[in-house]
Simulated assay, not measured.
Amino acid sequence: MSGRRADLAIVGGGLSGGLIALALRQARPELDVVLLESGEMLGGNHRWSWFDTDLDEAGHALMAPFRKAEWRGYDVFFPDHSRSLDASYFSLASSDFDPGLRRELAQDTIRTNREVVHCTPDSVTLADGEVIPARAVIDCRGFGPAHHLRGGWQVFMGRHMRTSKPHGISRPVIMDACVEQLGGYRFVYVLPLGARDIFFEDTYYKDDPVLDRSALSSRLDQYAREQGWDGEIIGSETGVLPVISGGDFRAFRREQQLDRMPQAGTAALLAHPLTSYTVPQAVETAQLVAANADLPGDQLAALLASHAQRHWNRTSYYRLLGRLLFDAAAPNKRYRIFQRFYRLDERLIERFYAAQSAPFEKFRVLAGKPPVSILRAIGAIFGKSQPLVMSNDRKAHGA
């Protein structure tokens, strides 16, 4: 059975798919848009964060409809260096992403609990046999096995706790690396969501994508005890994200058929290669689609493939740093790279997270006494990292 013909059908109601639907609603409210999500809630069970300087005025306007946490300034802690920085920081939970989209989008746009079994540039087939024809279809499902890419992984488990008494934290802690380093760069990420609400996440830059839930949960328990926190656990999340340090993008582009099927989000590698932040890239892509909303599927595929290629080209520097992190630094000494980085100029740090580093800033990050062996650094620059492959039933998702 076939449904109505939509102008655009978006497969995947995560960050990228949801923001594309929102940008289309704001720019072209007359269009018939369908947003398909396999789960019950848009955005799944995730939290996305970004710095004020990651987005321009239009980008902040796109994110304005969502209820989110905001702080002025943040802290970092390393064994030999701590620092407070001034940039504003934002965080959005999927529990606020879902109602925000439902408020803003047309009532017949959102279709949750819809499993997609096949999609083409102009149609979507659901598990129940329904076919949704559309002028253009955009696949926004997550990152899968990528044999032509290389790098490591960011593995994490986060927990939202309502503490029995005020926790006393007033600013986010983006990195607390004063924890035991266990087989990779490890840090704890802390967000004070209220006087008695705290979100904290144990994060690892690892060579493999293994997520040991029991071990990470125990370490979160330990961290909470050390901070004097106790109370009720009201939410948790886990994730495995690719940290891309190299590869053959042209081969990846052919393998993923980016030129034939319109794709966005992490499936098209539209994320910061080193930090795995996705909000700036998701906003940029949503605005690009909204500005070209009348294109048919094949032309939209070409546009988005070129957009992904440009992003790959302009982020080569961050992949180089990823090779230094994974291939030049001993796993338990990787924290030294970030410890040194956070001694640099604050504006440099801001532009780094926005993936907009100026040429002299790129040089400055690498200049001076390196935190890794020169010989190992040279080997990492000219060598190859391990392939970014994980099993089909453990797809990574956006952060």
Rank of each mutant, 00 (worst) to 15 (best):
L105P: 00
T285N: 13
H167P: 04
R5C: 14
P371Y: 10
G184H: 08
A305S: 15
F77Y: 15
R394P: 01
H307K: 04
A358P: 06
R260D: 09
F66T: 08
L85K: 09
Y89H: 09
S214I: 14
A177V: 02
S82K: 08
R219G: 00
V76M: 15
T266L: 11
G231N: 10
G235A: 10
K369G: 13
V179W: 02
H81T: 01
Q227T: 06
A87C: 15
G231V: 05
A290R: 03
D54K: 11
A367K: 13
W153F: 11
V116Q: 01
V11S: 05
G194H: 08
R336A: 08
N45F: 08
A329Q: 02
A355M: 04
L101I: 09
L15T: 10
K362S: 09
A354V: 02
Q299L: 13
I10L: 13
S385L: 07
Y205K: 03
L126V: 05
D98T: 05
G184N: 09
L295F: 08
A224N: 06
S373C: 08
R376F: 02
P29T: 12
F156D: 09
E350W: 02
S218M: 13
R171V: 03
A69T: 12
P79Q: 09
L182C: 15
R103I: 10
C178N: 03
D207W: 07
D32V: 05
L348G: 06
T203H: 15
V131K: 05
A21N: 03
D32F: 09
G18I: 02
V76W: 14
D294R: 10
A358D: 13
G18L: 02
P273T: 05
L149A: 05
Q154L: 14
G43C: 13
Y223W: 14
M390I: 15
L321H: 02
A21H: 03
P166N: 11
E226N: 14
A330M: 10
G239I: 05
A58R: 13
Q263E: 07
A291Y: 00
H311D: 10
V137F: 01
H148L: 03
L85V: 07
A27V: 14
